[in-house]
Amino acid sequence: MAERSTVTAPERTTPVGRRRSASAREMLRAHPTLGPLVVLVVSVVVFGLINTRFFSPANLSIMLQEVAVIGLLALGQTIIILTAGIDLSVGAAMILAQMVMAGTEVNSGVPAGLALIIGMLVALLTGLANGFLVTRLHVPPFIATLGTLGVFTAAGLKYANGQTVNPPQSSVLLWSGKLLGTGTFRITTGVLTMLAFYLVFAYVLGRTAWGRHVYAVGDDIEAARLSGIHSARVLLSVYVIAGLIYGVAGWVQIGRVSSASTNISPTLNLDSITAVVIGGVSLFGGRGAVLGTLLGALIVQVFQNGLALAGVQELYQQLAEGLLVIAAVSVDRWIRRETRQ
């Protein structure tokens, strides 16, 4: 233990000394986003050196636009993983929400603004369903969301009925696809929306009591309960909020491709988890930050884009992503190993 003979003077003018351990593990433990930051900077530099087109404004724009949807999904996933949960239904929830948004406007003739709200309500309900299963029926999150993955997928397919829905150009549903920027550097309002959400949740998780409680519940749910935190209430709110974020992701997705279809990337669920894990957020809960997830999502994007520009076959892109995940989780385990002093 840190045994020290303390000064017995009644008043000490300096604040109690901050012990800064020099060890790399302690460093990573205290700053879980440090690892992903280094990986991102190094990979950007390396890919930039391999192919100068990597740094072209057009390419940077494309990468940012690509990352908007997965970034939002990974944000919701992060909050859930912080509570030591996991959400396998992210992609399905998002697809269902966007189908409802576009479908109610185009097929049912509901005004676009109202269609957006209805879609968000559906997204909220998906979160509520997951939260209910986890907190009331005590189904482990992995199983609960595996089940709802099937349910939401089926609901989305049923509602869409194999159609691709194209909202009219003026629709608010396409707002997030609007391009901003100068010259060849152009980002969408969807990218800004995603960044704004990260800022908001960085604040909420780090600076509000609710944020503290999310971490405490993920860290040790029994300790949180004994500390007077309503753990079930916190968990339920986490799933509901994550559902709403998936709804926003659905909205951004419609804007990006100007249509809503159930036929989009089947790997969204795993990609969101990949971004979270590479971002240094612990799968075991209570550790990590949303900034890390954003870095994680960017790292995945940079690897995909950089390897493609370097002319590497797609199978190696998948290999690289897999190795990154394994490395990230191994580092996390190593960080978390109990240190007894």
Binding site: Y215, A216, D219, D220, E222, A223, A224, S227, G228, G286
Partner: peptide, 21 residues
């Protein structure tokens, strides 16, 4: 309780105020 109701990843001050921030 014997199982101490502390959250390991939070700092001392946060633990003292946990649940009554």
């Amino acid at each position: 309780y014997q199982s101490l109701a502390v959250s390991p990843a939070l700092d001392i001050a946060s633990n003292i105020y946990l649940g009554r921030e």
